[in-house]
Design a protein around this nucleic acid. Structure first.
Lengths: 144, 144
DNA sequence: GAATATTTTAGACTTAGTCTAAATCTAAAA
DNA sequence: TTTTAGATTTAGACTAAGTCTAAAATATTC
């Protein structure tokens, strides 16, 4: 599975500042996870990130990867993307955008924000507020 | 987890006709699965459907539930909804609509079609055609 | 430094979903 | 009717993403 990210790379603010600004206590493990995760815009799974971190000299457990990704998601640093039941993708670009998923190739491609639908508060179910809007357009290769 | 479905109930076309029209060969198991699934509009998981079918006197295996749901989805009779990584929901209403998901209550609520975004073919990645558009708006209960 | 709280860890555990290979069913040919 | 080939169903083994647990490590407060 490849990913195609057309957005600009993450601005290189020190990850420690990034974490602190989001109310996340910095630890050794969180620093190396964040450095690996935010080194570029990417769609990555927990196990891919685990491999990547430990290939970069880290020594981080599976449980910590899951805990940390959950924490980062909760704090708005990453976005969870649910393409299918079998895996969660984490998007290191948490800004407002959505995705095309090519079912033929497995590519996950960023969608420009202008294509995002408009939702009015009044359209939401009574007594609720919007938290996130997730749009996934499944595409397939055009028949030749 | 409850579901809130505001759409009209499925029209009561005989399920056999429904299956045949979608190019699905009718078998005993497929008939009872379809009867259970399409008895009303619902968001249901494979294991819930398995229970329901076998409580209704059916004798259908887990593998057949999965195979059949996959077949129905492929033929456009049901829609798969991916809310989180842990479970796939099957929507017995396959018509064009989308969903609100209340993270506080677990409610999955239908969204009227008018809220669906417009996508132009020219906006899609080169060489691809749209297959499905999945929109899930996560909402939470308004603070009191 | 002692006591307490937070974080990390290995590895057991859960479970949604897939796979396999045998058994059963169906339709059509002979 | 019997044969045959292909499609379907099945039990149960299997896979793997993600969670849980209880202990160890680390940080903070008293």
């Amino acid at each position: 599975m490849t990913t195609n990210l057309h957005n600009a790379p993450h601005k290189k603010k020190p990850v420690e500042q990034m974490l602190t600004e989001h109310g996340i206590f910095v630890t050794t493990q969180r620093r190396i996870i964040a450095e690996t995760l935010f080194s570029r815009n990417q769609h990555i799974t927990a196990d891919q990130l685990l491999d990547l971190v430990n290939k970069n000299g880290g020594r981080v457990s599976k449980a910590t990867i899951y805990n940390t990704l959950g924490l980062f998601a909760e704090k708005g640093l990453v976005r969870e993307i649910h393409i299918n039941a079998s895996k969660t993708f984490y998007d290191s670009n948490a800004s407002r955008h959505h995705h095309f998923f090519n079912v033929d190739t497995g590519d996950l491609i960023d969608m420009k924000e202008r294509l995002v639908p408009l939702f009015l508060q009044s359209d939401l179910p009574d007594g609720t507020v919007m938290e996130t809007a997730d749009v996934v357009i499944r595409v397939r290769n055009q028949a030749p």
